[in-house]
C-alpha cells in the first residue's frame, strides 16, 4: 500500500516528528511504500542541517536524512512555510538574496501542490502534528 506522511511540527518541542519517524520506519518494515514525507507548518524546521542536539539525545534531522538515504524517501519541505521560518536551499537563498542556506541532506523544498499530490497518489495520508 502507498502511504503519504505529513509532519506539521518542528523537532523536539512536539513529539510529532518522532512519531512520524517511527510510523514511517514501521510502514517500510511492513513492506509499504512511502511515496512522500511532507513537512508543513513548523514541521519545516525538521529540515535544517544546523541543529546540534546534545550527544546523548536523538538527532531528529539526521535520523530523517539517514532514513531517506536508506529508503530513497522523497522528503519535501513546503516552500511557503519554509520561507516564513527561514529554511532555505541554495536556489532559494540566492533568489531571496540571503547569505546562506540551511536545508539538510535528503530534504527538498517545493510547493504545497506536493502535499495535494501525495493525498491523490497515496492510499493513505497520515498526519502528525499538534
Amino acid at each position: 500500500m502507498k502511504f503519504g506522511v505529513v509532519v506539521n511540527e518542528g523537532p523536539y518541542t512536539h513529539q510529532a516528528s518522532d512519531s512520524a519517524y517511527q510510523f514511517t520506519k514501521e510502514a517500510i518494515a511492513q513492506g509499504h511504500e512511502i511515496i512522500r514525507v511532507f513537512f508543513y507548518h513548523d514541521g519545516v524546521n525538521n529540515g535544517t542541517r544546523l541543529t546540534v542536539p546534545p550527544g546523548d539525545d536523538r538527532h531528529i534531522q539526521n535520523n530523517w536524512s539517514e532514513l531517506a538515504k536508506e529508503h530513497n524517501l522523497d522528503m519535501v519541505v513546503c516552500i511557503a512555510a519554509a520561507q516564513r521560518r527561514g529554511i532555505l536551499d541554495e536556489n532559494e537563498a540566492k533568489r531571496q538574496g540571503k547569505d546562506a542556506d540551511n536545508i539538510a541532506e535528503g530534504f527538498r523544498i517545493s510547493g504545497l501542490g506536493q502535499l495535494i499530490e501525495a493525498g491523490i497518489q497515496a492510499d493513505r495520508l497520515v498526519t502528525f502534528g499538534d
Partner: peptide, 13 residues
C-alpha cells in the same frame, strides 16, 4: 491561515 493556503493550492487539482 496555513490550512487555507492548502485549500487554495489544492483547488487547482
Amino acid at each position: 491561515l496555513e490550512a487555507l493556503e492548502v485549500v487554495l493550492i489544492g483547488a487547482a487539482f
